[in-house]
Design a binder for these strands. Structure first.
Lengths: 217, 217
DNA sequence: CTCAGTGCTGTGCAAATGCACAGTATCCAA
DNA sequence: TTGGATACTGTGCATTTGCACAGCACTGAG
């Protein structure tokens, strides 16, 4: 759920406080910083907890745990991208939904970002609904690679990422699902370029790994 | 300055508390854990502060900052275990083949170690040969869980870990592959115990996630 | 033998703290 | 127009918590 500006300010304050002192602020500390009542601080914390940003431990002084830490060392972390509105560069670090502490160099070649798979179109490649796939940023791919394909809907202006196996013959590109129940997506690059607009298809990168969390179904 | 065993215990407790809850323990929490007086806890904290292990923020509830984190860069890493010779505790941190920089808390519940899958017996669960599965350490499992089963070969004395779906009816345990080409492994717990030796079967933990690296085949 | 350090019990207190309850005002969507 | 979410003020209370002071027992160094 989206945060209000005030809530975001308070979350940032809590993160900075913890980074500087090693323990979370109390309600009073938050209230003092922003110049309002202790109970107002409490309600902000409850709101942040409702929205899943923090976790509160009842009756414990300073019982705050920040769940999604935006700060900290980004060195061994990977950004997770969802589908974002047109224009916005899909894989710009500042548009990350979340940063996960996974060393990008564990993948080979190195992963640049993660993408959440939705749907079961790649089950036969061992890629399930909800899995996070590691993507190495590159604009070309070899036949047989599984790629993160970036598709632009020219009418709505929305970009979306899909994971498919890539196959190209001349100017004809096929995006093939690893599930017999799904038909391939066919793209004619010649036609695509002739449109003289933004290309409707581009390669965001190739899949270099996968991360799955949770008990299996 | 060197720590006493008691002080080391308390420091470790504080580190674990923070890792699990995101904020430090109070004097009372420490006292309760070790079964002594709140003031005894306070004096231990003062001693740890004198010795430079922690920093105390006066008058602040839970005002503890751990300065030298003994777990160090290991905080966001996971050990990978292979199959090890008999006797050696399979999942003791010092027996790790490798440490991978993946935040254990990304898994739910938290992963304690990774295990490399060999073979294609779990393909239908989206688990491929060479995948690393995250395992949460626990000695019991629910029916349907995918578990890391620890099997001991009594003749050779070798222990090995296999990943299988767990199903138990009374004293009869079935370890089921997710691939029709493999037959389930059947274990009779009654017979197992009657052997009056080390149990041939135990649950090392339950699968809580998966990590795969490399371009798909 | 003495003294410092460790490792506790026990009591008491003031301040810090979480939390419940009662209001007020604004905005926005149904 | 009503209801819910946001964003506060203000009061009061029971606990939690840090902290101080008074002891006791043990150990190891000088």
């Amino acid at each position: 759920m989206a945060l209000t500006t005030r809530q975001f300010e308070i979350l940032t304050f809590i993160q900075e406080w913890i980074r500087e002192r090693g323990f979370p602020p109390s309600h009073g500390d938050v209230a003092e910083r922003f110049g309002f009542n202790r109970n107002a601080a409490r309600e902000h914390l409850l709101a942040l907890a409702r929205k899943g940003e923090i976790e509160l431990s009842p009756n414990d002084a300073r019982g705050i745990r920040v769940l999604k830490d935006a700060s900290g060392p980004r060195q061994f972390e990977l950004p997770l991208f969802g589908n974002i509105a047109a224009g916005a560069p899909l894989t710009a670090p500042e548009n990350a939904q979340e940063w996960l502490r996974i060393d990008p160099d564990l993948f080979r070649p190195r992963a640049d970002f993660l993408h959440r798979v939705s749907g079961d179109s790649m089950v036969d490649a061992g890629i399930l609904d909800g899995d996070l796939v590691g993507i190495h940023h590159q604009s070309e791919a070899a036949n047989g690679d599984i790629i993160a394909a970036c598709l632009l809907d020219r009418r709505t202006g929305y970009e979306s990422i899909t994971l498919k196996r890539y196959r190209r013959r001349g100017r004809q590109v096929s995006l093939i699902a690893e599930n017999p129940r799904y038909a391939p997506i066919e793209i004619d690059l010649a036609k695509d370029e002739a449109a003289q607009e933004l290309p409707a298809f581009r390669i965001a990168g190739v899949m270099v790994g996968l991360f799955r969390t949770g008990r299996p179904k």
